[in-house]
Write a protein that binds this DNA or RNA. Structure first.
Lengths: 195, 195
DNA sequence: TTTATTTTTGAACAGTGATTCATTAATGTT
DNA sequence: AACATTAATGAATCACTGTTCAAAAATAAA
C-alpha cells in the first residue's frame, strides 16, 4: 500500500487562494493552481470534485472559522453588546490582516457563491449573521441600540458596507490604512452621520 | 442603398439586460441574447465590439443617467442636505422599480466591471460619488452632519450597503418590500443604531 | 428591371481550459 | 525481491461558446 505524502489538499487550497485572489475565479486556471501547489494538473481532481469545489471549500473554512470565533465572543459575559459589535467587525477585518489573499477571495467571489451554491453556503452565512443578530437584540434589551431598525435589513446593510470597503481597499491598498477604515465603519454603524 | 430598419442596437441591449440578469454575465450566451432580440447571432457584432462591450455600454447608460439626475438634484436650492441625501438614495432604488433586470445587472456585475474596465468606468462612478460627497460636505457646513467621518470611506460604505441589500432583495424579492429596505437604509445612514 | 450598396444571416471556425484516464511511480506487504 | 495497491502524472480529449465571414437578402438608385 502506498500512503499520501505531505498535505497536497492543503497545498492546493492555499495555491488556489492565491490564484483566485490574483486572477479572479473565472480567469484562474487549474493548471496554474497545480503548478503553484507543486502537483500535476490532474492531481487537483484527486482532492477536489471540480474547480467550483475548491472555491466552495475555501468559503466553508472561512465561514466555519468566523462562526466559531463569533460564538466564543458572544459567550463572553464581560462584554457589553456594543463591545461585541465592535469585536464582530474586527473578526472580518482580521482575516485581511492574517491572510489578505484569502480575504480578497472572500469578498470578491461572494456573488459567485451566492448564485451557484446557495444551498450549501447560505446555511453558514446565515448562521453567522444570526449570531450577529443576537448581539443587536442584546443591545436593544440593554437599551443602548435603537429598536426601530429592522434587524434583517441591518445585517445585509453592514455586511455589504464592509465587503465593499474591503474590495476597494484590496484594489488599491495604498489609499487608506485598514485601521482607519475599521474605525470609521464602527463609528458610522453606531452613530450614523447626523450630528 | 439599404437603410437599417428598427433599432437593433436597442433591442440587443435590452435583451442583454434580461439575459445578464437571469444568467449572470459569464453564463450569458450571445446566441441567447440575439435570439431574444430577434436578430441573428452575428448581428450582435455589427453593433457591439464584443460581449464585454455590451455590458460596458449598459453601465455607461446607468451611470450617465444617475449622474445627470443627481446633478439636477444637487442644484435644487429648496432642499436641505439631508433631503438631498435621501433623494440620492431614492435614485438608486428607483432603478429597481423602473427596470428590475437592469438593476440586477447593475449590482451583480459591478465587480466584473471594476476588474476589467476600471479605466473606462471608474470615471463615471467616481464622478457620481463625488457629487454625493458634495452633499455630505454641504451638510457638514450646515452643521447637521458629523465631520468626524472620513467622507471617502463613507461613500463606499453607503454604496456597498445598498448594493448588498439590493442583491439580496433581487435573489428573493418576496422577503421584504423594497420601500421598507429603502426607509431603513435612510435611517441607519443618518442615525446609526445607537439609541 | 437591373445594378450597386449595405445589412443581415448563421454555420463554421478557433481558442480556451476544465476534466479524464491510460500510464508510471511510490510505498507497503508477503 | 516480487507483488499488490494506491498515488500521482500530464498529454489528450472534449465541450463549450465567442467570434468571423462568405453568402444571401433587402433596399435604394439608375
Amino acid at each position: 500500500m502506498r500512503v499520501k505524502e505531505g498535505n497536497k489538499e492543503k497545498d492546493i487550497m492555499e495555491a488556489a487562494i492565491k490564484v483566485f485572489a490574483q486572477a479572479g475565479y473565472h480567469k484562474a486556471k487549474i493548471s496554474k493552481i497545480a503548478e503553484l501547489a507543486g502537483v500535476a494538473t490532474g492531481s487537483v481532481y484527486l482532492y477536489f470534485e471540480d474547480k467550483e469545489d475548491i472555491l466552495l471549500r475555501i468559503f466553508d473554512n472561512v465561514w466555519n472559522k468566523l462562526f466559531v470565533e463569533l460564538k466564543e465572543l458572544i459567550a463572553n459575559k464581560t462584554l457589553t453588546a456594543a463591545d461585541k459589535l465592535d469585536a464582530m467587525i474586527d473578526l472580518i477585518f482580521d482575516i485581511y490582516i492574517e491572510n489578505p489573499a484569502l480575504a480578497i477571495v472572500f469578498v470578491n467571489e461572494q456573488n459567485h457563491i451566492m448564485q451557484h451554491a446557495s444551498q450549501r453556503f447560505t446555511d453558514k452565512y446565515e448562521k453567522f449573521l444570526d449570531l450577529g443578530e443576537s448581539i443587536i437584540k442584546e443591545g436593544i434589551k440593554e437599551g443602548v441600540f435603537s429598536n426601530s431598525i429592522d434587524i434583517k435589513i441591518l445585517r445585509y446593510f453592514v455586511f455589504g458596507a464592509i465587503k465593499n470597503l474591503l474590495q476597494h481597499w484590496a484594489a488599491d491598498p495604498q489609499n487608506y490604512p485598514l485601521n482607519k477604515i475599521r474605525q470609521n465603519v464602527k463609528f458610522i454603524i453606531k452613530h450614523g452621520i447626523k450630528k
